[in-house]
């Protein structure tokens, strides 16, 4: 499904602000995998997702997505295969446009856009059904401007937009981190529902260890730009937060007390 080989990325190379974000990531994602990604700040989690999505290009290494080498492909081209939800609820939707307009654009992801109408009448019914499944009452507000929605509603809408046209890979970059706990739980529940129903291959970054353990079939831990821990199947199911903390302690040799606090 996705094969990443020796992926490297350094920001501000050669300056005082040089930051080695990824130092050789190797990762193979199998079809149907739901992988949760954890790691301290600066471990390279978001960079990994952004490189897969094409926001930046890597310094070295390769990314093969569904048999296609996308390492140097521009972001908008590989978007045809990817669904994305960002940490910032404002980033995933166009606030000045209506709910249905946002959905219609998402529905055309990967398609060449022409001079046909932006939304067709028969689509509206489909959008209504899909919105109803979110159980947020958005199905009756098709023409409302998205900027009127709450952060949680926008994130749920972005999630729907990312999966309206089934992606080969769904990338979730701490998409509940900016929400209050109750809303975060709701969005996470919607995430689970959508991923399971469509059997989507998913890569989800989270700061919440409990979520990382509870969700998905596989868990990876990143540290200093590398994947240091990769666990799946039965082994993952029996995992406890304390195991992860211990693992984290081992890889960081106990130096990063702050990171430990962030993770727990």
């Amino acid at each position: 499904m996705l094969k990443i080989t020796n992926l490297q990325k350094t920001f501000n190379a050669g300056t005082i602000n040089e930051k080695k974000a990824l130092t050789g990531v190797e990762l193979v994602i199998n079809p149907g995998d739901f992988i949760t990604v954890i790691g301290g700040n600066g471990a390279g989690k978001s960079t990994l997702l952004n490189l897969i999505a094409g926001v930046y290009l890597p310094d070295a290494g390769s990314i093969i997505l569904d048999g296609i080498d996308v390492t140097k492909q521009p972001e908008y081209k590989r978007a045809a295969m990817l669904g994305r939800v960002f940490q910032d609820p404002m980033l995933g939707t166009a606030g000045n446009m209506g709910i249905e307009e946002n959905l219609a654009m998402a529905y055309r992801r990967g398609k060449t856009r022409g001079l046909g109408w932006g939304i067709l009448n028969e689509e509206r019914k489909y959008y209504k059904e899909q919105l109803a499944m979110l159980d947020l009452g958005l199905e009756n507000r098709l023409t409302s401007k998205v900027r009127l929605l709450s952060g949680g509603q926008r994130q749920a809408l972005t999630l729907l937009m990312a999966t309206l046209k089934k992606p080969k890979l769904l990338l979730l970059d701490e998409h509940t981190a900016a929400l209050d706990p109750k809303t975060a739980a709701k969005v996470l529940q919607i995430t689970e529902q959508i991923v399971n129903e469509n059997n989507l291959t998913t890569l989800m970054i989270t700061h919440n260890m409990k979520d990382a353990i509870r969700l998905g079939n596989r868990l990876i831990m990143m540290h200093e730009g590398k994947i240091v821990y990769d666990i799946s199947g039965e082994e993952k199911k029996s995992l406890h937060v304390s195991d992860l903390l211990q693992k984290f302690e081992t890889v960081t040799s106990g130096e990063f007390a702050n990171d430990r606090m962030l993770l727990s």
Binding site: E75, Y76, K77, A79, A106
Partner: peptide, 9 residues
């Protein structure tokens, strides 16, 4: 940002 993620140049 969103528009690029939805596959538009």
């Amino acid at each position: 940002h969103m528009v690029r993620a939805l596959g538009v140049n």
